[in-house]
Design a protein around this nucleic acid. Structure first.
Lengths: 196, 196
DNA sequence: TCCTTCACGTACTGAAGGTACGTCAGTGTT
DNA sequence: AACACTGACGTACCTTCAGTACGTGAAGGA
C-alpha cells in the first residue's frame, strides 16, 4: 500500500506551508506576516495555500494544533515519569512553565491564538491537549482527598490561567531570578492547597 | 477661561470616535471592525480619525485606556471601602471577577488588548491601573506577615493571570454555578496562602 | 479686515486576503 | 497502451481596508 506520488507531494507542500508559516508567525506575529511571505518561503503560490486551507486563520489553526501537540507531549512525558499523582501535577506544571517560555511557542499559543480564533475555540483546542491532562490530575487529587472536595473546572481554569500569565511574564522579563521564583511561588501555592 | 468652540468640538469628535469604536470593538472584535464603520458611526470621516489618532492601533489604545480606567475605578471603590488589608484583597478580587465578566470589557481588555498592542505594552498599561493596586495590596500583606515572605512580582502575576482566565471562562460558560464557584475557589486559594 | 491656524473632508494609493479559472502531471480503466 | 478524469497547484484578478496627500472653510488673534 505505497502512498502515491500525488499524496506524498500533497503532504509535503502542506507541511512546508505549516512549517514556514509557523516560523513566520512565531517571529513576526500573525498580523504582521502576509500570505505572500508564507507562500514564497514555502516555495509555492497562493493557489496551493488555498487548496489546503480555507483561510489564513485556518492555516494558523493548523500551526496552533501542531504547537499544542508538541507542548502536551513534552509535558506528558515529564509528568508520566512520576508515579505519584501529586508529583505528576508538580512536575507537569514545572514542565509547562519551562516549555512555554520559548518565544516560538509563546506568541502562537498564548498571544495570537485567542485573538485569531477567539477564546471559545482556543479553549476547546486547549482542552483536547494539555488542558485535559491538568483537569485529569486535579480531579484525581480531589478524589484522593489531597485537595479539598470541590468542582474541578474552576480550579483548573484558575491554575491554567496563572501558568499562562506566568509563562508570558517570564518570556519578557529579564531578572534571572524570575524563572525559579515563579515556579516556587506556583508550587507553594499548590502545596498550600493540600489538605493532607 | 471658557474653552473655545474649537476645543469643544475637537474633544467632542474625539470622544465620539472613542465611544463608537469601543462599542464596535467590544461587539465585533478589533480585526472585524473597519475604520469606515467607525467613522460612519461617529458621524465623521477618516480625515478626522487620523487627525486625532496616528493609527487604528492608536485608537484602540485610547479605548483600552478608558476601559482599564473604569475597571480600576470600580475595583478601587469596592476595595477602599474596607479597612483591613486582607479584606481589601478579597473584595478587590471579587470585584474584578464581577466587573470583567462584562463581555464589553472582556473582548477589549483581555482578548484583543494583548494581541493588538503586544504583551509588553498591555502589561505596562495594566501596571499603571489595576495591576498596581493588586501588587500594592499583596506587598502590604507580605509585609504584615499575612503571606509568607517572598517576592511580590511572581505572586502578582500568578494571581492576575488566574483572575483573567477565570473572567474569560465565566464570560463564555453557561453553568449558573460558575460565578460563585470560581470566586470561592479563588478566595479559598488566597486563604490557604495565609500563614497567620 | 486680513491672515494664520487648525479641525476635518475628499480623493487616492498600496497592500493584503480571497476568488475564478486555467493547466498539467498523476491515476484508474479498458 | 491509449484513454478519460481527477486533483494539486499556478495565474490573474477582484475587493476591501489601513494609511496618505492635499484641499477647505471656519475659528481666533492682530
Amino acid at each position: 500500500m505505497t502512498q502515491g506520488i500525488r499524496a506524498q507531494q500533497r503532504e509535503q507542500t502542506r507541511q512546508a506551508l505549516v512549517r514556514e508559516s509557523r516560523r513566520l508567525f512565531s517571529t513576526l506575529g500573525y498580523g504582521s506576516v502576509g500570505l505572500s511571505e508564507i507562500v514564497h518561503a514555502a516555495g509555492v503560490t497562493k493557489g496551493a495555500l488555498y487548496h489546503h486551507f480555507s483561510s489564513k486563520a485556518d492555516l494558523f489553526r493548523a500551526v496552533l494544533e501542531q504547537v499544542q501537540q508538541e507542548v502536551a507531549e513534552r509535558i506528558a512525558e515529564t509528568a508520566d515519569a512520576r508515579e505519584d499523582t501529586w508529583e505528576q501535577l508538580v512536575s507537569g506544571c514545572r514542565a509547562f512553565l519551562t516549555v512555554s517560555t520559548d518565544p516560538t511557542i509563546q506568541r502562537i499559543m498564548l498571544v495570537d491564538g485567542p485573538a485569531v480564533l477567539g477564546w471559545s475555540e482556543w479553549r476547546a483546542m486547549n482542552e483536547t491537549t494539555s488542558g485535559r491532562h491538568l483537569a485529569q490530575v486535579l480531579g484525581d487529587l480531589i478524589d484522593e482527598g489531597v485537595f479539598a472536595a470541590q468542582r474541578v473546572e474552576p480550579l483548573t481554569h484558575l491554575l491554567s490561567g496563572a501558568m499562562n500569565e506566568a509563562a508570558l511574564w517570564l518570556a519578557t522579563s529579564t531578572d534571572p531570578r524570575n524563572p525559579d521564583d515563579v515556579q516556587d511561588a506556583l508550587v507553594s501555592m499548590l502545596e498550600s492547597l493540600r489538605v493532607v
